[in-house]
Every structure is written in C-alpha cells, then in structure tokens.
Simulated assay, not measured.
Amino acid sequence: MSSVSIHQTAIVAPGARLGHNVKIGPYCVVGENVVLDADVELISHVCVEGHTHVGAGSRIFPFASVGHQPQDRKYQGEASRLEIGERCVIREAATLNPGTAGDGMVTRIGNDCLIMASAHVAHDCIIGDNVILANYVGIAGHCHIGDNVTFGGTVVVHQRTRIGAYAFIGAQSMVDGDVIPYGMAVGNRAALAGLNLVGLKRRQFDRDAIHRLRAAYRMIFSNERTLRERAEDAAELFKNDAMVQDVVTFITSAADRPILVPRNGNGGSES
C-alpha cells in the first residue's frame, strides 16, 4: 500500500484491492469488491462500486458512476461484474453498469477505449478494444460492439444490437439494427450509408483489400434475391478475402437479427 496515493477525503472500503501506483483523488468512493490494477487514477468525485475490475493505466474523471447496479428491473442483486480493460479513459459523468443474470453476468469493456462525458454503457454489453464513445452516447443492454468502432456524439443504440469491427456511427443516429463490420451508419432511424472508407484508410488497410471490400459490398446490398443469398455469393467469389468473410459471417451468423441496409437499396454512398 506504500505506493498507493489516497486523498484524505476519499473513502476506500477495507476489502478493495489496489495495485501499484494507484491514485485516488478527492471525494472518491471505492467499494469493497473493487479491484484497481496498477497505475489506475481516479481524478476526483469518482464512485466505483460493485464487483468491478479496472485495468492497469486506466483513468476515470470526476462524477463518473462505475459499477452501480444495472438499470434493469429484473436485476435482483446478483453478484454480477463489470470488467474494464487497460488504458481506458472514462470521462466526466459517464455511467457504466455491471451485467445481470439475464445474460452472461458481466459487462466487459476492452483495452484502450475512450468513453467521453455523459456516455452510458448498460448491463451485459461487450465492448471491444479501442472503441470511442463520444459525448452522450447511450448503449442499451446486451449490445456487442466490435474492436475499433467509433461513435459520434449523442448516438443511441437499441438493446441487443451488434456493431461490427471498424464501423462508424454518425452523430445523432438512433441505431436499431446490426451494423456490418467496416460499415457506416447514419440517421434516425439509422441506415447503412456505405463503408467506413475514411477510417480504413486512416488505419492503413491495404488499398486492394478495400477495393475488394467495396465490390463485395455492392454485391451484398444490391436489389437481387435475399440478403443471405447475396452474402453467400460474395463469400464464394471472395473466399480468400478476410475482410469480406468478416462481413459475410456477421450477416449469416445471426439469422434472427435485423441488419441495417442502405435506404436506396443499391449500396448507398461510400464517401
């Protein structure tokens, strides 16, 4: 404990486990079942409760509420968990809830995530690595968000929605269907607006791979036959392309889920 810094106004329960070089600022509250790994910093006025594990190097800013009971009437006090990865930044007034018995009993947030002011991650969500939630984003319960997804401000995501890796969700969108990997969704209600080409280029994806993905996208979201049939055709035509296979697997792996499609039915804009 000699390497831990706890402000004299903070309240830390005796059972809390604090790693090397943890810093707990003024007026923070840390519950008895909380684990803060090495180099975690609670700036001030942070409340961390429940069975919550915060990964090494993460920083949590004032008035964030982390690990309090879910906003779910079915919750009956079960010892569900909230797991936050390493090097995450959780900004002012964000709220993150643990899981419930109605799902996997855990809410999990990956490494290197940025959760901006007043954003909300509800119970039983699984959030990948390097995800950005801009201000006032609301993720409802049971959602699965892939790696490297970016949300613009004031986005709302319906419960049990899946959003594939490297997708981009435009500001002020209401998302009530699944968004394919590498896709871009915009609007209220949101529709698929093409591929996240800017994001793919910024992350230095291979140019030829992007061209193949664009060709597959046009095939999958054309107007002929069913979406599943078009996806299976793309899987065969681009059977050696990992990015196309990611999209196809996402579409075909959950037949009972609505998939967002372009509004005009012909592949949408890709700008």
Rank of each mutant, 00 (worst) to 15 (best):
P26A: 15
A13Y: 02
D241Y: 04
H142A: 02
G110H: 05
H45L: 08
P98G: 11
D178K: 03
G25Q: 12
A134C: 14
G146P: 00
A134N: 13
C28A: 09
S44M: 12
E232N: 13
V137Q: 03
I180R: 06
S173N: 08
R207C: 02
M1K: 13
I6M: 08
Q159K: 02
L36I: 05
R91A: 07
Y166G: 09
Y217A: 02
T150W: 14
V157T: 13
R81M: 12
Q8A: 15
P98Q: 11
V198E: 00
R228G: 14
D37W: 01
I251S: 06
V4R: 01
V244Y: 03
G138T: 14
E224D: 14
D241V: 01
A255Y: 01
Q69N: 07
T154Y: 12
L96V: 10
L213K: 06
G153W: 01
I180K: 11
V261T: 15
V106K: 13
G15E: 10
E232F: 08
H53K: 14
A117F: 13
Y217G: 06
I6G: 05
M1L: 14
A93L: 12
Q8G: 08
V34D: 08
E78N: 04
F63G: 00
A119P: 04
V157M: 09
D246P: 01
H53T: 15
A117I: 14
E83A: 15
F168N: 09
H123T: 08
